[in-house]
């Protein structure tokens, strides 16, 4: 293997199944997510946070930028499997998600901004650009 690949050392990718946060309230969910990020990990979360949890995550991130040294925030993207399902498909999924608590067809990627420079997404793909 070529030398230079090692430049990407210094972080890990954590996969978090939704079952791990399912029983947690919003505060604890966000705490868990941010703990993983603050440990310099890129988090791949099965499902997605609720809209109000996403804004709460942004609020807590902003508060942490001021209080945690070298923390500059997060890069975040959600890719949903049911974006083109139409109205009835979404309704069906909406009901299922309301029962289960989240959109299992979705994947959420969150990384510390010091590691992840940019996440570009379109409906079908996510590209992660890392800081060197």
């Amino acid at each position: 293997m070529k030398k230079g690949v090692g430049k990407l050392k210094g972080f890990t990718i954590n996969f978090l199944p939704f079952s791990e946060i399912k029983s947690l309230d919003s505060t604890k969910r966000i705490r868990k997510v941010l703990d993983i990020i603050l440990d310099n990990n890129i988090l791949i979360l099965q499902g997605r946070l609720k809209p109000e949890e996403e804004t709460r995550l942004i609020e807590d991130t902003m508060a942490m930028i001021r209080h945690v040294k070298n923390f500059k925030g997060v890069e975040l993207a959600v890719i949903s499997g049911n974006e083109n399902d139409g109205f009835f498909g979404k309704m069906k999924m909406g009901l299922a998600n309301a029962i289960s608590g989240s959109d299992f067809g979705a994947i959420t990627i969150i990384g510390p901004a010091t590691i992840v420079r940019e996440i570009k997404r379109n409906p079908k793909k996510i590209e992660l650009f890392l800081n060197r």
Partner: peptide
């Protein structure tokens, strides 16, 4: 700019909710 920025989606998702 690319509209599929998560900030846009989060804002609009929150307003819809």
């Amino acid at each position: 700019e690319n509209p599929y920025n998560q900030v846009n989606i989060t804002i609009i998702g929150n307003l819809a909710a």
